[in-house]
Design a protein around this nucleic acid. Structure first.
Lengths: 344, 344
DNA sequence: GCAGTATGCTTAAACGTTTAAGCCTAACCG
DNA sequence: CGGTTAGGCTTAAACGTTTAAGCATACTGC
């Protein structure tokens, strides 16, 4: 029907060249020495004709798409979708739109996503990298495409990243359990080699050590990301039937959700028989009969800082790699048997 | 550093024209009568040089971007992020990538998102439309850009959509409460004029009528989407303090989450004092001390059907508008005081 | 031996922008 | 008054593809 209006259409309408219209509509009338009268004439015509620029053509010409590629493990995980929402809003403020992809913690899928997005000329990436993808990130940096790592990171790599201090946060969590008179503390983590996961484990071990509690290998459970539900159930039953520990530390919200289900099934009472503490947030934590104490990462901060870094990278290619540490807060509820009474 | 390899680079490398390379790499060697030897030579060269097509340039030429625009109320809502994940996977199978945006139930924001995405030449939209956006959808249809509505829809509008039968699902939910001996049934809905919400209310009213229960206006609460937490608390306290009803029907998961918090605060026992039933899913429902009975919409089905419709639209512009109804299942737990014992 | 058809490739325009370079006129200045 | 400068516009190439049209040459069949 109504053909799309192009630059030359409004140019013809006004009786000038397309170039002039381009200058005006891009606010370059000063540099291009366009007369004020012509400027307003062009603007009016553009408005009248409802001219909408073809962003694709512009992108081809200038080699930028004003698009950010966001790659996370799984967009349906509330932790990541919350971050995605923040990133969406912050990016929009700077004129960027975001395309997303879920890697399922697979290096291959992540590479595919990167390739697809690169071919679409995304201007920058925000990635929560899967294990074993250092080379992918390095390659991007070599090609000079800005990439910001979130949630995870690679020690020794010169890369922008925003994350919490995982060692310290995990340590604090376990210390909290110990302060609440727990001594037989198990941990459920992912069997991932990613540093953030390793550091959570190290934080756990260190807290035990600092309190002269022996670390038992069999109490550090490691579940695989694929069919987590079954794996968690299997691994946990060794410690729950019969109950051999008095506390459980979950390394992520999805592990906690799976773990709590198993705990419920076994009819174990929280916190009387078993104290619970977890990383991340979840609606489920609020509604567990004994509201779950957790280490909260501010998704708002992570998202905002990530976009801030992206934008500054995009405008200043040479800046040194930034390493933004966002704060992790311990949110104390009832699941550790703490004396703090339930308060609104 | 290493300049990006373009079509003409591999052409020069082989000693042929760029056109030939294009034909081969697009699998059009038959139509273009390219010799098998040349074909393989070109392919080999492309692989050697690691040629990556510039999708933007291609898009400009052919007027398609292989991109789907997804607009929902809020990507951080698990209901929508789950759908987003399905759509991502299904779209990828067909070579599409998805860009997303959150409308916050605002017609203006939705229009902005549509404009931005249109300027980027998305091939099609999947939209959970905000209230009052019929015109926006109609405009898209007039412009011949494929739109699939999900979750919500506009009666009388000739548009592809996939959703549940809201009237029937709501009716079934309330009937379930009545079967469980509840007679003073309140409902918490959004104050939205969107048909899907209206029909949930109608289903509620009809169920009351069919069972000779009088509908009380003051028992149908309507909260606003903005700062839902406070509004829900305010509206509900009228019915909870003191307790005037024996059952609550929540029209969405976010309403339920807010409502359950309020109910907990008031110290009301579920299901003894108050039965609970909700729409949608939530991790929270599993972990409420009395696991919540809910009407489950299959996000997998919604996502899959939506992409299926998109793809068929994209290949057959003239097909009649399809109206896909996905099934809603009542998942019975304990929050209605039903006799079914807790089972895995 | 020649029209007709296959075969194998090239040319060039087009998609809708951006932007450096150029062209013309008028104003300025010593 | 002639040379410079400023002002206001246009031209045209370029971004990296796709694809219709064209041009050789070689192979048919009669």
């Amino acid at each position: 029907m109504e053909k799309k209006i192009a630059l030359k259409d409004v140019a013809r309408h006004v009786g000038v060249s397309a170039a002039l219209v381009s200058y005006v509509l891009n606010g370059k009338e000063k540099e291009a020495r366009v007369s004020p009268e012509m400027s307003s004439k062009i603007r009016k015509a553009a408005a009248e004709l409802n001219y909408q620029p073809n962003v694709i053509a512009k992108s081809l010409k200038i080699g930028k798409t004003n698009t950010i590629g966001l790659i996370v493990a799984d967009i349906s995980n509330p932790f990541f979708s919350s971050i995605a929402r923040i990133i969406e809003d912050e990016a929009k403020k700077h004129g960027y739109i975001v395309i997303f992809g879920s890697s399922d913690e697979s290096a291959d899928k992540q590479q595919d996503l990167i390739d697809v997005m690169l071919n679409r000329l995304v201007d920058a990436f925000i990635i929560a990298p899967s294990a074993g993808t250092e080379k992918q990130i390095k390659e991007l940096k070599k090609r000079n495409v800005p990439v910001i790592l979130i949630d995870r990171y690679f020690p020794g790599m010169e890369a922008d990243c925003v994350h919490i201090n995982n060692f310290q946060a995990a340590n604090k969590a376990v210390q909290h359990l110990i302060k609440n008179k727990r001594s037989k503390i198990a941990m459920l983590a992912y069997d991932s080699q990613l540093p953030h996961m390793q550091e959570r484990k190290e934080g756990y071990k260190a807290a035990l050590k600092e309190n002269a509690l022996r670390f038992k290998n069999s109490w550090l459970l490691e579940a695989s990301y694929q069919n987590i539900e079954q794996d968690v159930a299997k691994k946990m039953s060794a410690l729950l039937q019969p109950l051999q520990v008095d506390a459980f530390f979950f390394a992520t919200n999805s592990l906690a959700v799976a773990g709590l289900k198993k705990i419920n099934e076994c009819g174990i009472k929280v916190p009387e028989e078993l104290a619970i503490i977890s990383f991340d947030e979840s609606d489920a934590f609020d509604f567990f009969y004994s509201p779950v104490t957790y280490v909260s990462q501010s998704v708002a901060d992570i998202g905002k800082e990530a976009v801030k870094l992206v934008v500054s990278r995009l405008h200043n290619k040479t800046a040194k790699a930034a390493n933004v540490i966002v704060e992790a807060k311990l949110i104390v509820r009832e699941s550790c048997g703490s004396k703090t009474k339930k308060k609104k």
